[in-house]
Amino acid sequence: MNSTATTDGTARGRFRGADWEAQQRRVTVTVLILPVILMTVLFLVPLGYLVWLSFGGPNGPNINSYKQLTAPVYLNLAYFTLQLAFFVTVACAVIAYPLAYLLANIESAISRFMILSLLISLSLSVLARTYSWIIILQRNGVVNDILQGAGLTSQPLSLVYNQTGVYIGMIHILLPYMVMTLYPTMRAIDSSLVRSALSLGATPWTAFRRIYFPLSLSGLVSGSILVFMMAIGFFVTPAILGGGQANTIVMAIQNQVQVLVDLPLAAATSVVLLLVSLLILVVYEKIAGVERIFGKGRR
C-alpha cells in the first residue's frame, strides 16, 4: 500500500481517518438503499407513468387531455377547490391562533389536558369523524334538535349535504394541524421581549402587534401552507358531507376514473394537481424549511 503511511505515524493516522470516513459513507449508503429503492419503485414510477399517460400514453405525445381540462366545468371546479381551501385555511388560522397562544403561554393542568386532547384527535379516524358530523348536523340531528328546542328556529336547518357541512367538517379536522404547527413557534418566543416592550411603556395591544405577532408569523405561515395543501387534496370529508353540492377537483378525478373511465384525462388532472402540490412544497421549503416538519426546529 502507501509506503509513507507505514513509515510515518501522522500520515498513517490521516490514512486511517480517510478510511474511517469512507467506511462511514459506505454505511450511510447501505442504510439508504432499501428506502430509496422502495420510494423509487412505488412512488416515482407510478407518478412517472401517470405523467406519460397524461400525454397520450402509447398514442404518442399529445396534449389532448390537457386541452379537455380547459373546459369551463374544470375551471369552475378548480376555482371552487381553491376558494374552499382558502376559506378553510383562513378560518383555521383565526380560530387556532388564540388557542395556540393559550397553550404556549399559560402553563396549567388545563392546557396540558388540551394538548393531549389535540394529539389524540389528530390520530382519530377521519372517516368516523366525518360520519359523526352527518349524525350531528342532519335534519333530525342534535344541533337542529337544540335549535328548535330553544325556539331559535321553527323548522330544521339544512346543515349537511351542502357547503356548510363541508366547511364545518373540514375546519374541524384541519384545525388541530394548525394549532400543533403554531404551538412550537409560540413556545420558542422569548417572553422577555414582550416584557421589555411593556416596561418601556407599550400598551399590551402595541406589544402584541409590534413584538409578539411578528415573531409568531413564521408558525402562522407554515401552518397555513400545511392546512391549505391538505385542504386542496381532501377527499373523504367534502365527498361525504357535500352531498354533490361541493365538488372539488379530487372528486372530479375519482369521477373521471370510475364513471367516465377516461384514464388519460384523470392522469392529466392528477398531474396538474401534482404540480400544484409540489409548488406548494417548494414554497414551504423556501419559507419555513422542511426540517421544521422533521423536528429540527423543535429543539
Binding site: F43, V45, V257, S270, L274
Partner: peptide, 29 residues
C-alpha cells in the same frame, strides 16, 4: 439530506387521490 427529506416527505404532500390514480393506472396495466 435536504434533498432526501423533500423526497421522503412527498407521499404525505401529494394528494392521496393523485397517488391513488398513479398506482391504479400502473397496477391495472
Amino acid at each position: 439530506a435536504k434533498a432526501l427529506r423533500l423526497f421522503f416527505i412527498a407521499p404525505i404532500i401529494v394528494p392521496l387521490m393523485v397517488v391513488g390514480v398513479g398506482f391504479y393506472v400502473l397496477y391495472a396495466r
